[in-house]
Design a binder for these strands. Structure first.
Lengths: 155, 155
DNA sequence: TATTGTTATACTCTATAACTATA
DNA sequence: TATAGTTATAGAGTATAACAATA
């Protein structure tokens, strides 16, 4: 009987966590978009810029598509607009003339840095009030959750 | 000195949590969209349907816009498409001829239910592996975080 | 005059399919 | 033939501004 209750509760908790995560994602999306507007950027554009930043070295269009969970045609459009504004540049690959490497420009990097500083200044009340220990636990759970969800995407 | 380190770490954790949350939001978005495609629905459409479901009773276009963090012109478009497919309906308000109430139809409710059942069956590995106690802690932290972020949006 | 909702407009994102040029 | 990337196409979402009907 105990076990039965726990099962129900576990299923309920799982659904609740998913629900809250979706809501959180929605609100974060709105919140970030609002902030990005000051830099005339969209969320998909930021995701692309961050993927480039994280990889450190220029990567191909197809690698970029995979890293951002986008289709290659979508990436073409996003890179078109970012390149037009000088935030990234397409570099030809001497090894394979079909392939292109995309690189962040100096303007691209400095724009990302400006956004980071902006972020730092808007440190949320949430983390201010939460004990350090709990912050770490929360962060770890988030990372764990993210990796499981991301893995499930490829099934 | 101790305090200095802790400050840096706290700031770092806050940024990390925000970063992971954005990534989680992005991946959840992709994951949900994939699933919603089977129902020929988009994420903004689901957000609208869920807002209507949550309110229990029909609400006006402007209330719907506020609840979903959208602008009224956007809601007009989304409701247009949902109404065309019979998932919601616009009802005139006898009290105020300018206003409209939007209601879920039977088809709308049953579609939401189908999605819920679908969700239940895809119980993630994450919650399966996490001890019940930790699930509750995680859920509470998520809810707390969501409410703080949502509140900050209105500043 | 103020409010409710729509329309017009312009742009971004998105996926699919067809295509070009290499390999 | 297969792969990398682009283009063409169609549709959804988004915000702003102008608008019509009603309060």
């Amino acid at each position: 009987m105990e076990k039965e209750i726990e099962k129900i509760t576990a299923s309920h908790t799982a659904k609740e966590i998913e629900k809250i995560t979706v809501q959180l994602g929605w609100v974060m999306h709105k919140r970030l978009s609002k902030r990005l507007k000051e830099y005339n950027l969209t969320l998909p554009q930021l995701v692309v810029l961050q993927a480039l930043y994280q990889k450190k070295t220029p990567i191909s269009m197809s690698e970029l598509a995979e890293a951002t969970l986008q289709v290659s045609a979508t990436i073409t459009g996003i890179i078109d607009r970012l390149e037009e504004r000088g935030l990234v540049e397409r570099q030809t690959d001497p090894e394979d003339k079909r392939s292109l490497k995309v690189a962040l420009t100096k303007i691209g990097v400095s724009t990302l840095n400006k956004i980071e500083i902006h972020k730092k200044n808007s440190l949320s009340k949430f983390t201010k009030s939460l004990p350090m220990e709990d912050q770490i636990i929360f962060l770890n759970a988030l990372q764990n959750y993210l990796s499981v969800i991301a893995e499930e995407l490829n099934e």
